[in-house]
Design a protein around this nucleic acid. Structure first.
Lengths: 195, 195
DNA sequence: CGCCTGTGGCTAACTACATTAGCTTGTGTC
DNA sequence: GACACAAGCTAATGTAGTTAGCCACAGGCG
């Protein structure tokens, strides 16, 4: 192949780094091209459009999130796994705000969209984390959705400056995870009795 | 005053209705002008820019959300208030998706930004809802943040089609609110014993 | 009753940006 | 060393937000 400095992957990676700096909604083809030392139209040799680029960033972000959670929960179980995984996600989002925003904005475009397995891997990570609580199978899906909601909501509000500063956000996060953990344990404890 | 068909308020209201239909990120000055039977530049006699317009929609949305919660929780307390308020917010977001998205995207622009009191009123509504649990004052802020997180996260994921369809999202929502309610009651119960 | 002023709306023009067309040129292959 | 292909470039197009400047109507006032 001829001179190939850029690839779809390298362009996506550079774009991800860029949106982490300037925010996802400030992404522009011109700015990215400048970063890569290239003129704007050249980018179209590697990505189909700005929407395509945003989608690739989203897939990258979801993959990285699931990896971060997996790494953090490796070798842990129950409450430990929950705390570690939740923190890992929070840290990831803080450090890769733009990517995460891209991940949220993205919608699967078809049945074989690579975004789907990427999102599924994140879900699988959460599900694995919940496994230690041995929840009733009818409750698993609800617990999973709650966990997603609470984590997504918290990190979203946090990075959006949604919390006032008078009380530590770190404390609130650990308090919240503890709250969830206690509730889960209560579910587990009552399960045999209630069925 | 001369012939005044449009006002900043009527333009904002029309824009809010528009984004509820087409999505916040598809808002355009041209489309809005067409809806109002006016040419695009005429809008600038009433709002300073598209960003200004988005900001006004955000303030409107926050105000309406707080009103919806207040109305729903009127005359209720404890678990009832929580369930009613949470449902009210969820319904509002479902019916006014674009407005809510505008509210999330907005950031206060200064110390006297009307967005600030609007957001504060929403927070006050949640705080009032929690009052029935008589939480320890050191826990109130954490509980408030958790509640915001879980509700914001859930409705955001729901409207973003983030949940698979094989299990009822309604069931998950009520399950989640119950989970929170039980956890809060546990906090209340143990508070005198633990201090 | 007609002039004066102020404001809403309009047309035309400008800018920024995403995107496309078509050309050029370097690199790997034969 | 020639060929072919793909990367990058320049030039051009279309759209959307925004600004400038003009026009016309409504109300106040002599």
């Amino acid at each position: 192949m001829p001179r190939s400095r850029l690839t779809p992957e390298s362009v996506t990676e550079a774009a991800a780094a860029l949106v982490d700096e300037i925010g996802f909604d400030h992404l522009s083809m011109g700015l990215l091209a400048e970063r890569l030392g290239v003129k704007t139209p050249s980018l179209y040799k590697h990505v189909a459009s700005q929407a395509d680029l945003a989608h690739r960033i989203a897939v990258l972000a979801m993959t990285e999130v699931s990896d971060a959670i997996r790494d953090a929960t490796q070798g842990r179980a129950g409450s430990d796994a929950l705390a570690a995984g939740a923190q890992a996600m929070r840290i990831y989002v803080q450090e890769h705000l733009g990517r995460y925003a891209a991940g949220n904005a993205a919608r699967p475009a078809g049945p074989d969209d690579p975004l789907i397995p990427a999102v599924d891997r994140v879900l699988a990570s959460w599900a694995a984390m919940l496994r230690g609580y041995e929840l009733d199978s009818s409750q698993e899906i609800h617990a999973l959705r709650m966990l997603r909601s609470v984590l997504h909501g918290f990190v979203t509000l946090e990075v959006a400056d949604g919390f006032q500063i008078d009380t530590s956000v770190d404390d609130s996060f650990t308090w919240m995870i503890n709250f969830i953990d206690h509730g889960m344990q209560a579910l587990t404890a009552t399960r045999p009795a209630l069925a």
